[in-house]
Simulated assay, not measured.
Amino acid sequence: MKKHYTEEQIIKEHEAGAKVDDICRNLGISTGTFYNWRSKYVGLEVNEAKLLRELEAKNNKLKRLLADKLLEVEAMKDVLSKMW
């Protein structure tokens, strides 16, 4: 089973001066993956990265809820159009 590291843990490791190659080896990721991750979180403090992750999760939940409601509305329109 792969270990899952949070953005906060990776930021702390990187800020502590760990080399990118060492971080990638420990996490089992490629350097390309690390740099893609870093481009997203560059300049963020640990608490900001955590907040960003929480906001993204909340945004995804809201998008799913909206999609469900839109499907319900379409279904209701279908039913109503057949009744009249």
Rank of each mutant, 00 (worst) to 15 (best):
M1D: 10
M1R: 15
M1C: 08
K2Y: 14
K2A: 15
K3W: 05
K3Q: 11
H4D: 13
Y5W: 14
T6K: 13
E7N: 15
E7M: 02
E7H: 10
E8P: 02
Q9P: 00
I10C: 03
I10V: 15
I11F: 00
I11S: 00
K12T: 14
E15I: 02
A16Y: 01
G17V: 06
G17M: 07
G17Q: 05
A18N: 04
A18I: 03
K19R: 14
D21G: 07
D22M: 06
D22L: 08
C24T: 05
C24M: 05
R25S: 14
N26S: 10
L27V: 04
G28M: 05
G28V: 07
G28T: 08
G28K: 11
G28R: 06
I29C: 14
I29S: 04
S30R: 11
T33N: 10
F34P: 03
Y35G: 03
Y35P: 02
Y35H: 12
Y35R: 13
N36S: 15
W37L: 04
R38F: 12
R38D: 05
R38A: 07
S39Y: 07
S39I: 08
K40I: 15
K40W: 01
K40F: 06
K40R: 12
K40Q: 15
Y41K: 00
Y41A: 01
V42G: 04
G43Q: 02
G43T: 03
G43R: 01
V46I: 12
V46R: 00
N47G: 01
N47V: 03
E48T: 01
E48Q: 15
E48I: 01
A49K: 06
A49V: 10
K50T: 08
K50Y: 02
L51A: 12
L51N: 09
L52N: 03
R53L: 03
E54P: 00
L55A: 05
L55Q: 12
E56W: 02
E56L: 13
E56G: 01
E56S: 12
A57W: 02
A57F: 04
A57T: 09
A57Q: 11
K58P: 00
N59P: 03
N59M: 09
N59W: 03
N59T: 12
N60C: 06
N60M: 13
K61D: 14
K61G: 06
L62A: 08
L62Q: 11
L62Y: 10
K63E: 14
K63Q: 13
K63I: 14
R64Y: 06
L65V: 10
L66Q: 11
L66D: 07
L66K: 15
K69T: 10
K69W: 04
K69E: 08
K69S: 07
L71D: 09
L71S: 12
E72A: 11
E72I: 12
V73A: 08
V73K: 07
E74G: 04
A75S: 09
A75G: 09
M76V: 10
M76S: 06
V79A: 13
L80D: 05
L80P: 01
L80R: 08
L80W: 04
L80Q: 06
S81L: 07
S81A: 10
S81D: 13
S81C: 04
K82A: 13
K82D: 13
K82P: 01
K82S: 10
M83N: 07
W84C: 08
W84T: 04
W84N: 15
